[in-house]
């Protein structure tokens, strides 16, 4: 069983989406032990004992993560289907490069497809989040994390 099926079918964490079957679209991106993976290209059993963070765990209760906030402020989503994967990718992107250029953001989205936005407002959102998060590391690695063994 793939990790994405485990998250969606076994744990009911349906915020992580499936958009393709060839590891191209990035709708299924989750964070595994602190780095993003396409959960359609990882067996659930390979994640045994790992810490998985999904979109459900990003906001702290009703308090949105700054990246979610930035997507909201900048119209970074339309149909919302790619959004979970985009946001998970974007969060890691800024962890690795807190001050990306617009070109770096675009390059960093190579593994995430969006059909609605033409990417422009996604790029804008991530750049806005970078500015907002500058010096304010967001330490909310709580809630919504799935630990599992089998």
């Amino acid at each position: 069983m793939l990790l994405v099926h485990f998250l969606r079918e076994e744990l009911g964490l349906t915020g992580t989406k499936i958009g393709c079957d060839t590891s191209q679209c990035g709708a299924c991106v989750v964070s595994m032990n602190g780095s993003t993976v396409k959960s359609c290209t990882c067996l659930a059993v390979q994640a045994d004992g790992a810490e998985i963070a999904t979109i459900e765990g990003l906001a702290n209760g009703s308090e949105l993560h700054p990246m979610q906030e930035a997507f909201w402020d900048n119209h970074g989503l339309q149909c919302g289907y790619c959004t979970a994967g985009m946001i998970m990718t974007a969060v890691e992107m800024l962890e690795r490069n807190p001050h990306p250029s617009s070109d770096e953001v675009r390059a960093g989205l190579e593994g995430n497809l969006c059909r609605c936005t033409g990417y422009q407002n996604i790029v804008k959102s991530i750049l806005a989040a970078a500015e907002k998060m500058d010096g304010h590391a967001h330490n909310d690695e709580t809630g919504g994390h799935a630990h599992h063994d089998h």
């Binding site: 590891s23 990035g26 593994g111």
Partner: peptide, 9 residues
């Protein structure tokens, strides 16, 4: 190679 997630894994 590939994309961020491909490189991560």
């Amino acid at each position: 190679i590939g994309d961020t997630q491909v490189r991560n894994r």
